[in-house]
Simulated assay, not measured.
Amino acid sequence: MTPPADARRPPTTESHPSGTDPLTLVVGVHLVLVDDGTVLLGRRRNTAYANGMWHLPSGHMEPGERVTGSMTREAEEELGIRIAEADLELVHTLHHLDADDGRSRLQLFFRPTRYDGRVRNAEPHKCDALRWWPLDGLPGTTVPYTVHALAEIARGRCLSTVGWAA
């Protein structure tokens, strides 16, 4: 349905004041592989963020990529598996305000309906272990927003926020 002409927002041509930028979100993609009540996590190694902590296979969108293309690329790079973009189901969206750098991040969590290949650690220089953990027994050294998102997914919630003032 098209809004009435007077309700449409006029195009803007103004520039942003000196020293400010328009909102930019960092978009992260996360793969949620669940098997018989367990979830696959990798322990991060030689990374700037959460070194030594357990986390879902994940990465960031690169310029010019579709979000689903980012997820399929990361799955192949990190786990050696191939996922068709059409086989990805978005199971959770997390709007995360990162306390470390103050940046607003949109974290998207995907579950594949199917994939090809055998899961393996394809990036041992960035991940020193892959392990299946019970969803109700994640290690204490799991990235906190990962724990949050997995709990929200288990509750059937598709959207949450973390890090914002109440």
Rank of each mutant, 00 (worst) to 15 (best):
L25H: 06
V143P: 00
V147K: 14
L150H: 05
G102H: 06
R103Y: 11
R43H: 07
P112M: 07
V32M: 04
V147T: 15
T141S: 15
D98T: 04
V29P: 01
T142C: 13
L33R: 00
W133K: 05
Y115E: 03
A149T: 10
T20K: 09
R9E: 10
P17G: 12
A149D: 09
D35S: 15
H125K: 12
E152D: 10
G59C: 04
T68N: 14
A154E: 10
R103V: 09
E74Y: 03
L41Q: 06
T93H: 09
H148A: 06
V39D: 02
R114G: 12
R105G: 08
T113G: 10
W132K: 04
T141G: 15
G52T: 04
A99G: 11
M53P: 00
I81M: 00
V67K: 01
V27C: 12
R155A: 15
L138E: 00
Y145S: 14
T146N: 15
L90Y: 03
S70Q: 01
G42V: 00
N121A: 07
S18H: 12
A50G: 00
D35E: 15
P17M: 13
F110P: 02
W133E: 08
L41D: 05
L138W: 04
D87G: 09
S18Y: 11
L108E: 05
W164R: 06
N121C: 05
L150Q: 03
L135I: 08
S58H: 13
T72A: 05
E78G: 03
E77W: 09
N46T: 00
R82D: 15
T13F: 15
D136F: 11
S18L: 14
G102F: 01
L138T: 01
H60F: 15
A122F: 05
R105K: 15
I81V: 14
P3A: 09
H30K: 04
L56K: 01
A122D: 11
L94G: 03
S15D: 12
A50D: 13
P134A: 08
G19Q: 08
P124K: 02
P139N: 05
G163Y: 06
H96Q: 08
A165H: 13
L23G: 07
H92V: 04
H148W: 10
T141C: 15
H125V: 07
L56P: 04
T113H: 06
G64L: 08
T161Y: 12
E89C: 09
R8W: 01
T161R: 15
H96L: 14
L79Q: 03
V39F: 08
N51E: 13
D6C: 09
L130T: 06
L90V: 02
V143I: 07
G59V: 01
G59Q: 00
G69C: 04
M1F: 11
Q107L: 13
D87T: 07
M53S: 06
A84T: 00
A48H: 13
E85W: 03
V143Y: 06
R8L: 10
A7M: 11
G69W: 04
A48K: 14
R118Q: 14
T141W: 11
